[in-house]
Design a protein around this nucleic acid. Sequence first.
DNA 1: TATTGTTATACTCTATAACTATA
DNA 2: TATAGTTATAGAGTATAACAATA
Lengths: 153, 153
Amino acid sequence: MDLSSRISPAKAAQESPLGGQLLFVLSQLQHQFHIRTQAVLTEVDLDVRQYCALAFIADGHTPTQHDLAHILHLDPSQVVTLTKGLEARQLLKRKTAEQDRRAKALAITAEGRTLYEEAEGLVSEVEASLTPALSRRDRNALRAILHRIVPFS
Amino acid sequence: MDLSSRISPAKAAQESPLGGQLLFVLSQLQHQFHIRTQAVLTEVDLDVRQYCALAFIADGHTPTQHDLAHILHLDPSQVVTLTKGLEARQLLKRKTAEQDRRAKALAITAEGRTLYEEAEGLVSEVEASLTPALSRRDRNALRAILHRIVPFS
DNA sequence: TATTGTTATACTCTATAACTATA
DNA sequence: TATAGTTATAGAGTATAACAATA
């Protein structure tokens, strides 16, 4: 079989019409971030979803489960499992919100913050390793561009 | 309840540690592209996956199912369903590859190309609508940056 | 009457194993 | 002996419906 006539699938994709579309490029990039982040987070026994939940509350603000479901695009029923799991490990607390006794206010614990900071270091390394061609300034510029495209939703 | 003291979940996420991380920003952006593309593609009765498969072969090259599985990060068994569905609609042909009779060479049909071109127009509109703050030149620059980060995998 | 969270469950999607044909 | 594709099925992940408590 004439191997020399076959280019790699990756190169073929890049050169095909698919390779020029943001839909695809973003999907590929996001996929790389996800699997590589998932891999490093095993070191702190977290998955990407748990990490994002901790990152969301790491600055000390206390959103509800509903808020978390909204920003992570999860069903509220999935957030129950997610937050209970983190609470069982003492990484966050779920306390009845005083303004609305139906809601649970999510608050990070001291242990949660410590673990988050360790995890954040690992995730930063992934970010750096996936953007080797970019300086720190370039990475910040990219972040700004991406924010400008969709100012969250 | 004091609504004025509660900011929106989206704004809270943007201002939280989460909002500064490429992992999250890319995930959000990719999610927007996916759901909005999925929505417009109903007009041509395609989903995002089918669209990507057609885009991959739209330039006339004839990858195998294995190649398609690789670039779309799908299990080979899923590609069977995907490609058979498109073949049943005469949008592509699966013919035994002459160099390797185990493999199926995927080739777009005339009808497939016509439908793809229509779909591509719809997807371009989504891209434009999601990047309103960017000129066409800026969008190309972004594509280039993203390609530079991860030159496919 | 609507909303938050919760549970149980149905549903969908993905991964696995076993197989055929070919290399 | 390994690989491409295929099928059936197991497993994981997600969405739905019904409910309790609160607004």
